[in-house]
Amino acid sequence: MNGIEHLPPWAAALTAILVLLGASVTLVGSLGLLRLGSFYERVHAPTLGTTLGTVFIASASMVCFSVLESRPVLHEILIMALGLVTTPIALTVLVGAARFRDTAERRAQVGEAEDG
């Protein structure tokens, strides 16, 4: 714990609000992973954490460090940009794989039924 006690009250409050917001949005998204029924519904869930969750927590970090070091600390923008660009790619590839597996499995079942 070195640093955050030197924050002025407004920055501390802003950081606290942003961190809590981001964490709750992320938790809601991850809860969706438990509550939603099928795989294609579940894929929607983590995007909450990667969009708003990441933006909130990275902005909190930006506010905190910029005030602490009294200069603009902007490298959290990299994490935001990375999250916004890479997650759709990963999820699209994953959904493509899931569809491929589904159709392959269905074809195998149809083949077995015809054989039997």
């Binding site: 294609y40 894929v43 699209t92």
Partner: peptide
């Protein structure tokens, strides 16, 4: 378009 659609929660680019 794929990035926009997938990163919006609730919609997902499939194929």
């Amino acid at each position: 378009l794929a990035c926009i659609i997938t990163s919006t929660p609730g919609t997902l680019w499939v194929k």
